[in-house]
């Protein structure tokens, strides 16, 4: 198997990599780039713990091959805050107690960022529908829905952050 040269931008930083064709995006992000906020759980694209954004669209990094991200922009949980300033979605998760063990949280937050980019003012039902591919075993989801709705309001009414998505 020939390794594939590729360039990819991860959290705003350009990388020139050479990856084996079977390397998954989660392996590339965790093992090669040290982005350990990308969590591996079900490994079969059901739980959403490994959700990252590829050109702003949410994907399960466990079942995407690294070379598929060639020439694209990948964004992980590590790329969301600006220095000490949390992204409004991160702030809302903290304030609403939308996390417990925290293992689903990075994927949950990245899926939320994608949702709010597509639909800035979702209803609770739209939130539940969009987010059904992200599993949380601890919270019972209620506070996550509340946090997402609060983040949506904050993004709509607050000062526009530098969040380019």
């Amino acid at each position: 198997m020939n390794a594939i040269p590729m360039s990819v931008t991860v959290n705003g930083e350009a990388h020139a990599l050479t990856v084996p064709p079977h390397e998954t995006l989660i392996e590339c992000l965790r093992d090669r780039l040290g982005l350990l906020g990308v969590k591996k759980s079900c490994d079969v694209q059901v739980c959403g713990a490994c959700t990252v954004l590829v050109d702003d669209r949410p994907v399960s990094a466990c079942t995407v091959l690294a070379f598929e991200a060639r020439g694209k922009h990948v964004r992980t949980i590590e790329g969301l805050a600006h220095g000490d300033d949390l992204h409004p979605v991160q702030e809302a998760f903290v304030e609403h107690g939308a996390l417990q063990c925290g293992f689903c949280t990075p994927g949950m937050i990245m899926a939320t960022v994608a949702l709010l980019a597509e639909n800035p003012s979702p209803t609770a039902d739209e939130v539940k529908h969009y987010m059904r591919g992200n599993i949380c075993r601890c919270t019972g989801y209620k506070r996550i829905v509340e946090a997402i709705l609060a983040a949506s309001e904050r993004l709509a009414t607050g000062p526009r952050t530098t969040d380019g998505g």
């Binding site: 350990l36 805050a81 107690g97 925290g102």
Partner: peptide
């Protein structure tokens, strides 16, 4: 009082470390 969790910041920024990390 419902003070923020000690681990909340690390858990929303991806800095939280588990054994699997």
């Amino acid at each position: 009082r419902s003070v923020p969790r000690l681990d909340a910041h690390d858990k929303v920024t991806g800095a939280a470390r588990y054994v699997s990390d």
